[in-house]
Design a binder for these strands. Structure first.
Lengths: 115, 115
DNA sequence: GCTTGACATAAGCACACACTTATATAAGCA
DNA sequence: TGCTTATATAAGTGTGTGCTTATGTCAAGC
C-alpha cells in the first residue's frame, strides 16, 4: 500500500540537523551551494554531499544557471512524509486518552527497572 | 521556536523502516513487545532496542502491566514533526517567497513554546 | 588559452547504528 | 521453589554516515 516514494530516504535525510537547516533555508527561497554553505562551519564539499542526500530523497531539486546550481524545495518528497504523518495525527487526535497517558507516565517503578 | 522535543531523534527514529512499521502497528492500538516483534524476522532484543529509540524520541510511551510492557503512540513527538513539516508544506502550497510570511500566517499558539 | 569561481567527486577516517547471541531481571504459575 | 514467559541489557561485529583534504570539471572573463 505504499506510494513507492522513498520514505526511508526522506526521513533519514531530515534526521540530520544540518540538512534540516538547509531545508529551512530553502523554504525562504532558492539558493546556491555557496549561499547554503555560508552559515555553517563545515566545508563546501560537505554541503554538496548533504544536498545530494536531499536530492536523492526527493526533497530538493537542482537548476542550472551558468556555473551555479541553485537548489529549491521539491514538493513530492515533503508531501509523502506529510501524508504519512497525517495518518498518525488522525489516529492520535481521535483516540488520544489523556488519563491513560497520565497514568502511564506516573506508573510506579519501585524496582527501578526502568531505563 | 523549539517545541522542547528532539526533532533530530524523532526524524532519525522514523528513518528506519522497521521502526516506521512499529509505529504503524501502534497506530492501530497498544501492543506488547512480543506482539510488535511477531511480524518481523529480527529477534526480540532488536525490537526492544528499536522501542527504546522510539521512546527516547518521544514517539512512544510505555505502560506496566504484570510482566508486560505495552507501548502506545505518544502525541507530542508526532505533533512536533507534523508541525515542522506543516511549515514546509505551507511554503510549497502557497508558493511563498519568504518564510517570515508563513510564520506570521500560522496559528500563534503553534509558533512558540507553550507551558 | 589560461585563470578563476562554483561546484562535484574521491579517498580515507572516526564514530554511530542495526543486528546478533548470551545473559539478567521480574512476574506468573505448577 | 523452581520453571516459564516477557522483556531488558551487554558485548561483539559488520555496515553506514559525516566529515575532512585533494582533485576534477565546466562555464565566464580576461
Amino acid at each position: 500500500m505504499d506510494t513507492g516514494l522513498n520514505l526511508d530516504a526522506a526521513f533519514s535525510a531530515l534526521a540530520d540537523p544540518t540538512r534540516r537547516a538547509i531545508v529551512g533555508r530553502l523554504a525562504k527561497g532558492e539558493a546556491t551551494v555557496m549561499e547554503l554553505a555560508a552559515p555553517f562551519k563545515v566545508t563546501q564539499p560537505a554541503i554538496s554531499q548533504h544536498l545530494k542526500v536531499l536530492e536523492d530523497a526527493g526533497l530538493v531539486v537542482r537548476r542550472v544557471e551558468g556555473t551555479k546550481r541553485p537548489r529549491r524545495l521539491a514538493k513530492a518528497g515533503i508531501a509523502a512524509m506529510d501524508q504519512w504523518l497525517a495518518m498518525l495525527r488522525k489516529v492520535l487526535e481521535k483516540n488520544y486518552d489523556r488519563l491513560d497517558e497520565v497514568l502511564a507516565d506516573m506508573e510506579p517503578q519501585k524496582r527501578g527497572e526502568r531505563r
